[in-house]
Simulated assay, not measured.
Amino acid sequence: MKKKFSITFIAFVFGLLTFVGSASADPVTYPPSLAHKDGAVAYEHMKYLADDIGPRVAGSQNEREAAQYIQGQFERIGLETEVQEFDYSTSRSSSNVVAYKEGKSTKQIIVGAHYDSVSVGLGVDDNASGVGVLLETAEVLKNIKTPYSIVFIAFGAEEVGLQGSKYYANHMSDEEIKNTIGMINLDSLAAGDQMYVYGNAGEDGFIREQALAIADKKKLDVETNPGLNPHYPAGTTGDWSDHAPFKAKGIPYGYLEATNWEIGDLDGYQQTVEHGGIWHSEKDTLAFIEEEYPGRVQEHLSTFSTLLTDLLKFMNKTSTSK
């Protein structure tokens, strides 16, 4: 997640919710009651990626298994799905898993989360949590006519230099870039002390402003970077995650994250008062986070799923006021 370089529509009521794992795995089933609680499906996806598959290091077999799992989920949901393979060195390859949902307009929003992790810990927070919210939102919205078409992307090889998002953004045509009104990035949603949404400075920050308006209306505990550090003006963040390649193309971004901008160097690197950063450490496991912060994971996944779903349902590019 941070400084990676140096560092509710229910479409599956009346039946079991079936998750498809890797090509060789038996389907995983859960009670349909999970569909009635925001964040519950996201939690199961997150848990499967972290606990059943484990660390998903870029280029590894586990990363490939995670890609297969995500592809299976998109296909089960019924979305048009493709796998975008890419090489990021002479001997390393990965893939982006891309799903398309048609909206009222051919203009599109990209929603992305990386599914790889570092080797230490299990990558629950960074970033099985983001993938869980991505997949739950895709499920909830699949039969809802959204204002814009949505491209859901699970990025590979983020932890080794944003390779998946760079590859995708660099292979967008000029017409596709022009047709994309924004990119929403989901990264490390589960462990941090506070939930945030960021965006561009100025008028291009409309995604952040609409998200904050939804949070205010629904009384969701989501805020934005307070701007205590002059290097990161209020409402913005650094270019250390998968939003950055799209921002570089002139595409406005929104970015959901859980951390703490009011401790340490006031740069968002220290997620928690008690334990500092959870990401990229042996603490990034579900067992540790739930023992230290009971209920936090469920609260965060519920909040972010609710926020993202409403944002995609009511997105209005022309509105920039809270």
Rank of each mutant, 00 (worst) to 15 (best):
residue 8 T to N: 12
residue 16 L to E: 14
residue 20 V to E: 06
residue 23 A to W: 02
residue 23 A to S: 10
residue 24 S to V: 12
residue 25 A to I: 00
residue 26 D to V: 04
residue 28 V to R: 10
residue 36 H to I: 10
residue 40 A to P: 09
residue 40 A to V: 06
residue 49 L to N: 07
residue 52 D to R: 12
residue 53 I to Y: 05
residue 55 P to H: 09
residue 55 P to I: 03
residue 55 P to Y: 03
residue 59 G to H: 07
residue 64 R to G: 10
residue 66 A to T: 05
residue 75 E to L: 07
residue 77 I to S: 05
residue 77 I to K: 04
residue 78 G to H: 01
residue 78 G to M: 10
residue 79 L to Y: 05
residue 80 E to C: 00
residue 85 E to V: 08
residue 88 Y to K: 10
residue 94 S to L: 09
residue 98 V to W: 05
residue 100 Y to H: 14
residue 106 T to R: 15
residue 107 K to T: 03
residue 109 I to M: 09
residue 115 Y to C: 01
residue 116 D to N: 12
residue 117 S to Q: 08
residue 118 V to E: 11
residue 126 D to R: 04
residue 128 A to Y: 03
residue 129 S to K: 09
residue 130 G to P: 01
residue 131 V to Y: 07
residue 133 V to A: 00
residue 134 L to K: 03
residue 134 L to D: 07
residue 136 E to S: 03
residue 136 E to G: 02
residue 137 T to Q: 00
residue 137 T to Y: 03
residue 141 L to H: 09
residue 142 K to T: 13
residue 143 N to L: 12
residue 143 N to S: 11
residue 144 I to C: 04
residue 146 T to C: 06
residue 148 Y to S: 04
residue 150 I to Q: 07
residue 153 I to V: 15
residue 153 I to S: 03
residue 160 V to D: 02
residue 163 Q to P: 01
residue 163 Q to F: 06
residue 167 Y to G: 03
residue 169 A to Q: 03
residue 174 D to E: 14
residue 174 D to C: 01
residue 175 E to T: 14
residue 175 E to A: 15
residue 176 E to A: 15
residue 177 I to Y: 10
residue 178 K to Q: 14
residue 179 N to D: 10
residue 181 I to E: 11
residue 181 I to Y: 10
residue 194 Q to I: 11
residue 196 Y to R: 06
residue 201 A to D: 14
residue 201 A to G: 14
residue 202 G to F: 07
residue 203 E to T: 14
residue 204 D to I: 01
residue 208 R to K: 15
residue 209 E to G: 00
residue 213 A to Q: 11
residue 217 K to W: 06
residue 221 D to S: 13
residue 221 D to Q: 15
residue 224 T to P: 00
residue 229 N to T: 05
residue 230 P to K: 08
residue 231 H to G: 14
residue 237 T to F: 09
residue 241 S to V: 04
residue 242 D to N: 12
residue 244 A to E: 11
residue 248 A to P: 00
residue 251 I to M: 01
residue 254 G to H: 05
residue 255 Y to A: 03
residue 257 E to W: 07
residue 262 E to C: 05
residue 265 D to R: 13
residue 266 L to F: 14
residue 267 D to P: 02
residue 272 T to L: 02
residue 274 E to Y: 00
residue 276 G to I: 03
residue 279 W to R: 03
residue 280 H to G: 00
residue 281 S to V: 01
residue 281 S to W: 01
residue 287 A to P: 00
residue 294 P to V: 08
residue 295 G to W: 12
residue 298 Q to A: 15
residue 300 H to R: 08
residue 301 L to G: 05
residue 306 T to S: 12
residue 307 L to V: 11
residue 308 L to T: 09
residue 312 L to V: 11
residue 313 K to S: 10
residue 317 K to T: 09
residue 317 K to M: 02
residue 320 T to D: 13
residue 320 T to K: 12
